[in-house]
Design a binder for these strands. Sequence first.
DNA 1: CAGTTTGCCTAATCGGAGTAGGCAAATACA
DNA 2: TGTATTTGCCTACTCCGATTAGGCAAACTG
Lengths: 190, 190
Amino acid sequence: MTRVGLTTDRLVRAGADLADEIGFEQTTPAELARRFGVRTASLYSHLKNAHDLKTRIALLALEELADQVSAAVAGRAGKDALTAFANVYRDYALEHPGRFAAARFRLDPETAAAGAGVRHARMMRAILRGYDLAEPHQTHAVRLLGSVFSGYVGLESAGGFSHSAPDPQESWTAILDALDTLLRTWPTTA
Amino acid sequence: MTRVGLTTDRLVRAGADLADEIGFEQTTPAELARRFGVRTASLYSHLKNAHDLKTRIALLALEELADQVSAAVAGRAGKDALTAFANVYRDYALEHPGRFAAARFRLDPETAAAGAGVRHARMMRAILRGYDLAEPHQTHAVRLLGSVFSGYVGLESAGGFSHSAPDPQESWTAILDALDTLLRTWPTTA
DNA sequence: CAGTTTGCCTAATCGGAGTAGGCAAATACA
DNA sequence: TGTATTTGCCTACTCCGATTAGGCAAACTG
């Protein structure tokens, strides 16, 4: 009985892969143990419980996504930065559906505050620097962008746009154009 | 042992209430049976299985939401209609978090096609009649609006805007203004 | 009011989550 | 290098939810 070499880290990374393959909901200690060829009970020295596993996968996904966004946005500004951010976000979701679902897993406030969610918010604001929006408009715009990205990608990966023309890619491009226009002419008087 | 009078319909409605109280994820046959004071096994003559329960709650929620949107939008046009649609959607989600989560439950294509999702799409397009957008711009706009509504409300009810000024209501109003502006000046060349 | 339907039951299996305690492999250390 | 300690994974268990099979009695049907 050679040891498999489980660590919290390996389990979480394998869990993220598993989520991409079979779905985040289905990513359970039992399934993960099966993947490693060990008994379920063996995971519990590395993970507190099933919720802990999901939380850790969520934090991993948020971190990965923040890294990719950060890299894509570096050195860009204005619409260029907006598009880069949006595309990384969408591509990540399409390539890693399980991780993306994990990133939307509801974390308790302290965990969320300690995770990479904060980086996401900061990067979003960085993008808006190119659009000259004063508060509170900037916050409104941050929330709008967050909603559109999360909403569009959520609907798309849930199959909301399948079986209907035009291609989701086309709408995505058009929507980014529209958002750019909107941010440049944001109605500050309302 | 008097009979409780279970029916599929009563179970589904109670399941929807249960979802609002304890969350859609936690809405299980076992919990529902407890609520009715019967054994879990007794549900299985009215429901196929746990997935069937969730599907039915989802369809109920979609129907309710479509009814409310339909009533609110009737007789309105343009920004008025847009705001009415959006507010009904958001209010429903905030008042009925479990039902709203159910409405986002992934249905298999045939079930979805038979459900009220189609009404939602039709109503969204009806609203856009006030904005004079030709295809494919109309579809892009439908997708944008769907993304914003679903995204904003999803983030808000997931606690994404808590502990941060300004009030989500304020952002919501500002975003609806911005969307109205955007729809009236949609970039058709891009 | 007999006969049939059927609603809810008991009893059972299966599988996942989680805990307690054991044994052996890896490591530390002389 | 041999011994002591740590610790990784195991067995064995409990608890609970999902689901099926079959029974009994309440409620309809005539």
